[in-house]
Amino acid sequence: MPEFILEADTVEFSYPDGTRALQGVFMRIPRGAKVAVLGSNGAGKTTLFLHFNGILRPAGGRVRFDGREVRYDHRSLMQLRKNVGIVFQDPDSQLFSASVFQEISFGPLNLGLPREEVRRRVEEAMQATEITGLKDKPTHLLSYGQKKRVSIADILAMEPAVIICDEPTAWLDPKHAEQVMELFKRINNGGTTVILSTHDVDMAYSWADYIFIMMHGTVIGEGTPEEVFQDGELLFRADLARPRLVETWAQLRNKGLLPADLPLPRSWTELFELVPTRRAPGTGGPAPVYVLDREGTPACAACSARRR
């Protein structure tokens, strides 16, 4: 089995209005990984995704799925779209049916599966996205978050090898955004490769295994979250902020509160475990920590900072 499930090899694409959306994109998606694609609006993320399941055809370069070059005859396209599913950003332009159940059944039915199998897949997808209770509700009476879940279930029911989701947390409140990210973690645990596009560096940092940074239709950087987010020059070029966790960690390290050789933590809990607790002698409570230079600090009765 090839190591990379999807590959874009110097893909170029221009829209009819002349916008050069992709200018030689080189991107290889590791099989079974959680991949985040970062980049500002207009960087070409969505255009690239549409190449990954054959909606758009590259003007130059190649797209490979599972090591084989994508071909554009009807049968090959159907095979590709069965394996690579896209959840679009706006659920209102993806959901075409007023019935949630019928909506989700559309994809698997197109795969030519028997009715019983389709029914099983729809039920499973609804369970995985926790929308079984919405089965008999009409699409137009759902909230935005619920519609988002239906649009994810749409693709899950097709059981693709790769799920691509364009800005899954846009317009979601923090709680629902986190639930959606958890959902993608579970989907990935089942062996599906998940690709997300996002602007949210904090989310990308804690969620992804591998990160691509796109700008002006090319990939300008890639690597593990630790690599990418410690590359200050790359972040500056891409106009991205450092994740707050990385920033805090770097600041703590620079001030000598953390040893320099520790690995970058992936979550706040990990970071807090790294910070040593100092006990004030005698009381057992936490001792005050002075970030300032000891010499400039006035003597303190509560601790022996000056004396030591």
Partner: peptide, 24 residues
């Protein structure tokens, strides 16, 4: 614009001219 977006979304789910759905 929306109709175009819908068509793209349908196509990516293997749409081939029939909006077939499963009835309960």
């Amino acid at each position: 614009h929306r109709s175009q977006a819908l068509f793209t979304a349908l196509q990516s789910r293997c749409y081939n001219g029939d909006l077939r759905v499963l009835e309960t």
